[in-house]
Simulated assay, not measured.
Amino acid sequence: MNQTASTIFLEEVSYFLEVYLDPFNKRIRVDDYRGKTKLLIEKVEELVLVHKAEKLIVKVRREDYFTFLEKGLQPEAVVDGYFLGSDAHFFSKFYTPERKKNDHWIIEDGMVHSIYQLDTTDQKPFPPKEYELRKADQSCAGDLAALYQQVFQIYPTPLHDPEYIKKTIKDGTIYYAFFYSGKIVSAASGEVNYFYKNAELTDCATLTEHRKYGLMKIILQELERELKRKGIYCAYSIARSLSFGMNAVLFQLGYSYRGRFMNNCFIYDKLENMNMWVKNLANC
């Protein structure tokens, strides 16, 4: 099967579907839909069979919650205000026994509990003056790709490819990065859905030797400011459930835990669970 991810649009008399085919992560995600819910679920399950997907994810509107439950899908996470202020419930279904098994769940429950005990007193980190925060443009694509190659052995999207990064910037994704001696040492992006007015803060990476200065926190705050300037107040981020540091950063920035995706994607060095964190930027 082709390993390149793609978005397809299916329009019939009774329904419309926007589907993200993700062969690398062996999953299919429904990003948008309208029309006859039961019919479109049947169509999506056909796609699962054709593409041999192991996991299906659907961003479900509140009014369709019980319809998807009845069809054998289960809620894994929620994003408050995702659809122009209305919540999105992320439902999933698994198609192989292996994809539904996980040894880390209890450990990750304990980690979320311990993160909620952390001090959230506003400590403004000040990195040394050698660190310069800038918005990254297409000319930075090579440096960004090099950073992601160093930090992530495996990543769910092709961020190791500068051409892919250039395309995401062209399509409206915002990148901010810290430069040290002319080299990018920390970066993150805001993937914006301009139609539904939400953004995923993602692609967070800092080189190990530069992690003591709280660079990621500063980058995410800068991204939040940019989103607010664009009138986007629904921000969410999906962090590796085994990464205490990244989950702690989001909690200390005022994000709330909203669920966990089991065996969601290949990242870092294996198939991992991912935690959902959500923040209403209008409140800050």
Score class of each variant (00 low, 15 high):
residue 1 M to F: 14
residue 1 M to N: 09
residue 2 N to W: 08
residue 4 T to W: 06
residue 6 S to V: 10
residue 9 F to K: 15
residue 10 L to V: 15
residue 10 L to R: 14
residue 12 E to W: 12
residue 21 L to E: 03
residue 26 K to W: 04
residue 26 K to V: 03
residue 32 D to A: 15
residue 33 Y to D: 04
residue 35 G to A: 06
residue 35 G to Y: 13
residue 36 K to C: 06
residue 37 T to K: 13
residue 39 L to M: 11
residue 42 E to A: 13
residue 42 E to Q: 15
residue 52 K to M: 00
residue 56 L to S: 10
residue 61 R to N: 01
residue 61 R to V: 02
residue 61 R to F: 10
residue 63 E to L: 03
residue 64 D to Q: 12
residue 68 F to Q: 05
residue 70 E to V: 04
residue 71 K to E: 03
residue 71 K to P: 00
residue 72 G to K: 11
residue 75 P to G: 04
residue 77 A to E: 03
residue 79 V to M: 12
residue 79 V to S: 08
residue 82 Y to P: 07
residue 82 Y to W: 12
residue 87 D to K: 14
residue 91 F to W: 03
residue 92 S to T: 12
residue 93 K to Q: 09
residue 94 F to P: 01
residue 95 Y to T: 02
residue 95 Y to K: 03
residue 104 H to D: 10
residue 108 E to N: 08
residue 109 D to Y: 13
residue 109 D to A: 09
residue 110 G to Q: 14
residue 111 M to K: 15
residue 120 T to S: 10
residue 120 T to N: 12
residue 120 T to H: 09
residue 121 T to R: 13
residue 122 D to T: 11
residue 123 Q to Y: 13
residue 124 K to L: 07
residue 129 K to S: 11
residue 131 Y to H: 00
residue 134 R to I: 09
residue 138 Q to K: 15
residue 140 C to N: 12
residue 141 A to Q: 10
residue 146 A to V: 03
residue 146 A to P: 02
residue 147 L to D: 05
residue 147 L to P: 11
residue 150 Q to K: 15
residue 150 Q to V: 05
residue 151 V to Y: 11
residue 151 V to D: 03
residue 152 F to K: 12
residue 152 F to S: 07
residue 157 T to A: 06
residue 161 D to W: 06
residue 162 P to V: 09
residue 163 E to I: 04
residue 166 K to C: 12
residue 167 K to W: 08
residue 168 T to N: 08
residue 173 T to F: 08
residue 173 T to I: 05
residue 175 Y to R: 11
residue 185 V to H: 10
residue 195 F to P: 00
residue 195 F to T: 13
residue 199 A to M: 12
residue 200 E to K: 14
residue 202 T to W: 11
residue 207 L to D: 00
residue 215 L to M: 10
residue 217 K to F: 01
residue 219 I to K: 09
residue 219 I to Q: 04
residue 222 E to V: 02
residue 223 L to T: 06
residue 225 R to Q: 13
residue 228 K to C: 11
residue 228 K to F: 05
residue 230 K to D: 05
residue 233 Y to G: 06
residue 237 S to P: 08
residue 239 A to K: 05
residue 240 R to V: 03
residue 243 S to E: 02
residue 245 G to C: 00
residue 246 M to H: 14
residue 247 N to D: 04
residue 248 A to G: 08
residue 250 L to C: 06
residue 251 F to W: 14
residue 252 Q to V: 03
residue 253 L to G: 00
residue 254 G to V: 11
residue 254 G to Q: 07
residue 255 Y to R: 12
residue 255 Y to P: 08
residue 257 Y to T: 10
residue 259 G to V: 12
residue 259 G to F: 06
residue 265 C to G: 04
residue 267 I to M: 13
residue 270 K to L: 01
residue 279 K to D: 00
residue 280 N to E: 02
residue 281 L to P: 00
